[in-house]
Simulated scan of single mutants.
Amino acid sequence: MGLLGRLSRQFFAAATITCLLVALGICVWWLTVAQGRDDRFEPATSGLALVAAVTGVYAERRAAARERRAQALHALADELVKNTELLAAGFAPLDRFAPRARVYPRLMQSATDAALVSGVFSEPGHGELVALLHRWRDAVHDFNRRLDLTELRTYVSRVPPEELLAIDEAMHRPGGQLDGLRRLRGSVEELLRGRYGVPGLRPGTPPPAGGT
Score class of each variant (00 low, 15 high):
82 K>E: 15
82 K>L: 15
83 N>V: 07
84 T>F: 12
86 L>A: 03
86 L>F: 11
87 L>I: 03
87 L>Q: 00
88 A>F: 08
89 A>V: 03
89 A>K: 09
89 A>D: 13
91 F>H: 05
91 F>C: 06
91 F>Q: 11
92 A>L: 13
92 A>E: 12
93 P>E: 09
94 L>G: 04
96 R>F: 05
97 F>M: 14
99 P>G: 00
100 R>E: 15
101 A>D: 10
101 A>E: 01
101 A>F: 09
102 R>L: 00
104 Y>F: 15
104 Y>I: 07
104 Y>Q: 04
104 Y>L: 14
106 R>N: 08
106 R>C: 03
107 L>T: 01
108 M>W: 13
108 M>T: 03
110 S>N: 11
110 S>K: 12
111 A>F: 02
111 A>Y: 08
113 D>H: 13
113 D>Y: 08
116 L>D: 07
116 L>M: 10
117 V>E: 14
117 V>C: 06
120 V>D: 14
121 F>K: 08
121 F>S: 01
123 E>K: 12
123 E>I: 03
124 P>C: 05
124 P>H: 03
125 G>H: 05
126 H>Y: 04
126 H>R: 04
126 H>A: 07
127 G>Q: 14
128 E>K: 12
129 L>R: 08
129 L>H: 00
130 V>W: 02
130 V>M: 01
131 A>F: 00
132 L>V: 10
133 L>D: 13
135 R>A: 14
136 W>F: 13
136 W>N: 04
137 R>C: 02
137 R>P: 06
137 R>T: 02
138 D>R: 12
138 D>K: 08
138 D>S: 11
138 D>T: 11
139 A>D: 05
140 V>K: 05
140 V>C: 10
142 D>R: 12
142 D>T: 11
144 N>G: 02
144 N>M: 10
145 R>P: 05
145 R>Y: 09
146 R>P: 06
